[in-house]
Nucleic acid binder design. Sequence first.
DNA 1: GCAAGGTC
Length: 858
Amino acid sequence: MKSVLMVAEKPSLAASLAGILSNGRCTAKRGNNGCSTHEWTGPFRNEGNVHFRMTSVCGHVMSLDFISKYTSWDKVDPVQLFDCPTEKKECNPKQQMRSFLAHEARGCDYLVLWLDCDKEGENICFEVMDAVQHVIHNVYSTFVTYRAHFSAITDKDIKGAMESLGHPNKNEAKSVDARQELDLRIGCAFTRFQTKFFQGRYGDLDSSLISYGPCQTPTLGFCVKRHDDIQLFKPETFWYLQLVAGQPEVTLEWARGRVFKKNIAIMLLNRVKEHKEATVESVSSKESFKSKPQALNTVELMRICSSGLGIGPFQAMQIAERLYTQGYISYPRTETNQYPENFDLHAVLRLLQPSGDFGDEARAISSDFQTPRKGKDAGDHPPITPMKLGHRNDFDRDTWRVYEFICRHFMGTISRDLKYRTTTAKLKVGLETFTCTANVLLDAGFTKVMTWQAFGKDEAMPPFVQGTQVPITDVRLAESQTGPPDYLTEAELITLMEQHGIGTDASIPVHINNICQRNYVKIETGRKLIPTTLGIVLVHGYQKIDPELVLPTMRSEVERMLTLIAKGSADFNDVLRHAIKIFKLKFVYFVQNIASMDMLFESSFSPLAESGKAHSRCGKCRRYMKYIQTKPARLYCSHCEDNYTLPNGNVKVYREFKCPLDDFGLLAFSTGVKGRSFAFCPYCYNHPPFRDMPKFGGCNTCTHPTCPHSLNTLGISSCVECETGVLVLDSTLSPTWKLGCNRCDVIINCFKGATKITVEENKCSECGAQLVNVVYKSDKSKFKDGSEEKSGCVFCSSEFAHLVEKHRAVASRQVRSGGPSRGGGGGAAGPGAGNARGGRHGGRPPKDKMAQLAAYFV
DNA sequence: GCAAGGTC
């Protein structure tokens, strides 16, 4: 018996297709990459019975990238990315999709491709064929490989597709290859160039990546456009007449709406004032409808989640994905908003009826079932509908809200339209016309279940009778101003993206998420998108250099060229070469004129030279803080609007270290090689986290139990001179090392050139100081026996004696007792070992470190 | 460290 391999785009679809094609009689076996294989026996074309094996991929198998030589941002000029070689790599090497497919293809004579019926699906067809070409004989032959064309996952459609198999479309697949290559080259070239150009110039750019992309940049463009409209808006004053008449009194609307010239308004007012009565010219009423919704597709789901539920599209899709994998809703990524012909709407309605939350509505609708509206059938997946009844307690709050919305929306689509009556009265005063309208609800229709769209209160109207006179109670001139538009809402942005073909249902939330994460826009209350300074400056910069770079039409122009490839009317290589040439020219021009964008950056951000080298991140918002060197020296976080006082002296960023308490980037303070130095957290320095830590203290006064920079971890012994200080290892200047007192100016330089020094748990049996472990590079060892590593006591170990010197910090205040006798006057003489041990020379022995710490806690 | 497109 012959065998047929069939491949779908995702595991869930493979299962559905196998179920339909085998009439529910297939076996299933789960692969270790999440893809299942289903098997059964049945007839195939004119082969009689064959063995079917149906499996799937997980979206694309391959993705495009530059060859490894061009991955370096430092060694490669971005302009090279327009011509350099690319290669296809497996999207997810861990999945081993290619070898999985090859394995499943063993022994198969035919290949039937069930990928989604769009260009991406066509492209994946060829990825699958490539993966199995060495296993299935003649896989590129039209007698071996077939393509199923289906537009809905229904019995009829799927079995029909099996009866009329076609062939994969090479041109459509190639158009996707071209799109991938263009996006890669253009996006990466611009992104690398911009990032490298601006990153090194400004200290307070709050994004580590200044990205450009053919979808994300126009998306940002929409947000900035609205911002500019608001900024450029000039309010205009206008005037209008308000007429009060009738019994009960109503304020009527002026048919002219408003006028922008005051003297004209006054003239018209005076003419009206000549009359004491208004004439009822007509009273008419008509029935109006508000249509029930169309079946739900992805974009509409995202829009309503954002505008109605306050859940962003990215999160909404994550929730929808989870609801789908748990079987509560149908596949959530679809453009189609029309139910398939034989879709069993009643079955869905039946499963909702037992619900305690909307079961009443479900039952009411089932006895008053209405045919749903027609919409668009994109041929991908059926609309999003409930598949299983869920209960409030099954989900977290937002998941329930999304699920409940999907259920209620479904019921809305098979409800009646909302019906209301509008009554309009037209009153005439001289030549001026005034109207009064009142709406009265006749049938709530779908709003009974979609309660958030409910009709407002019924409106009343005085009993105006045509042809009669009505006394005018009052007429006055009102003044008002035109207002600016509001910022773009997320729902509006989604609509704009959809209209301009920016992104797809699956990628729209990703693009919006991107421009938020890159700090180009912020989402404020009401899910409005407010562009940041960075976002505004970027878009304005493009507009100065090459406005096309930010126009949504740029994407559609590329898509138009790609369609030529897909239709077979243009050659793949010609189109690609042409498009790359254009964008390379644009890129070169952009690079040449980057100064005009830089001017905008200059006026919005602080050049790095001015803001000093020390710029560390704020622990609250993770943005870089401004280093203000003018006294008093401080760090300023412009986002949080907080200031942090700094010690006077040299302040540098202390590598990548962060304070474990507040996430602020650690800094290193020093007054020179021979002066004091310590690590500190700018937040703790101003707001000590522990009672025993002094204000304006460094990490060497912090009693955090585990932080690798704290007094607890790096303390060695009590100070050899002052009463309360502790000598703490300072590694901020390594490979220069010192023990510094955290209270006075005592400094013990030691172990110069060591690569690593760690403070050990154990104490010296003689003086009680913590032991240290010192490591030198093998060829740089300073130990007399040449060994690389030794543990011992800084004060007592003879092997350490020649590596430890003691002196007082230079250019600092006099310490209390002083005395040149101590420790041989700061020379290299026996590191105060004498005073540390004996105390006979007036010094005290170093106390037990933990006892010292305990004293701190009191 | 980069794009956009699938899907999980």
